[in-house]
C-alpha cells in the first residue's frame, strides 16, 4: 500500500514523496525478511496505516493499526501514572503462536511487527531499533505542506457520494 498523504496530530497534512514511500516500504520489507516476520506496519498515532509489508492475508490491517494506536494511548496513560516523562518506547504481546512488537517511531508514528514464536525477542529488538533509526531519518527529510483536498474531492464526487450513502443508509 502506498498512500501519499496523511495528517499529522497538529492537523497539518504530511506529504510523502513517492521516493520516500518506496524507501519506507523497502525498509519494512527488509525488516520483515530479516526477522522472517509475517507483517510489518508503519502507521501514524491517529491509527492510519501508512505503509506495510505482509506475508499473511488473515490479518485486518486497518483494525490492527487502530487497535495499536489505542494500545499506545492506554500505555501512555500508564506512563503518566508512574511519572514517566516520556511514553513507553515499546509494547510487546506474547501469544501461543504469534507475538506482536510495537514501538514508537519519533513522536507521531508507530511500527507494528507480527512474528512467529520461533523468532528471538532480542533479535526483534536489535533489528527494530536499526529500522526505527532509518525511518526517523526519512521523517527528518519529510516535507510538510498543506495539500489541497479540493483537488481530490470535486463537486461531482461529493454529489455522487451523497446518493450512494442514501442508498445504503436507507434515507429517502
Amino acid at each position: 500500500m502506498i498512500p501519499q498523504q496523511a495528517r499529522s496530530s497538529n492537523g497539518k497534512r504530511m506529504v510523502f514523496s513517492e521516493t520516500m514511500y518506496h524507501n519506507i516500504i523497502k525498509i519494512l520489507a527488509d525488516l520483515r525478511s530479516r526477522l522472517q516476520a509475517q507483517l510489518t506496519i508503519f502507521a501514524d498515532m491517529n491509527g492510519y496505516p501508512i505503509a506495510y509489508d505482509q506475508d499473511v492475508e488473515d490479518v485486518d490491517i486497518i483494525a490492527m493499526t487502530a487497535l495499536a494506536a489505542g494500545t499506545f494511548a492506554a500505555t501512555a496513560e500508564m506512563a503518566k501514572l508512574v511519572k514517566e516523562k516520556e511514553r513507553f518506547r515499546f509494547i510487546y504481546h506474547e501469544g501461543v503462536n504469534r507475538n506482536i512488537y510495537m514501538c514508537n517511531v519519533s513522536k507521531e508514528y508507530i511500527m507494528i511487527i507480527l512474528f512467529d514464536k520461533s523468532v528471538a525477542m532480542g533479535m526483534v529488538r536489535i533489528l527494530t531499533h536499526n529500522t526505527v533509526e532509518k525511518l526517523e531519518k526519512i521523517l527528518e527529510e519529510l516535507a510538510r505542506e498543506h495539500a489541497k483536498a479540493s483537488q481530490f474531492l470535486d463537486v461531482e464526487f461529493k454529489s455522487l457520494l451523497g446518493k450512494e450513502l442514501d442508498k445504503y443508509f436507507g434515507i429517502k
Binding site: 500500500m1 502506498i2 498512500p3 501519499q4 498523504q5 495528517r7 491517529n46 483536498a149 481530490f152
Partner: peptide, 14 residues
C-alpha cells in the same frame, strides 16, 4: 483525512 492517490482511496475519521 488520509488520501492514497495511487489507489484513489480517501479515508475520513469521525
Amino acid at each position: 483525512m488520509y488520501i492514497d492517490q495511487l489507489r484513489q482511496e480517501i479515508q475520513f475519521k469521525i
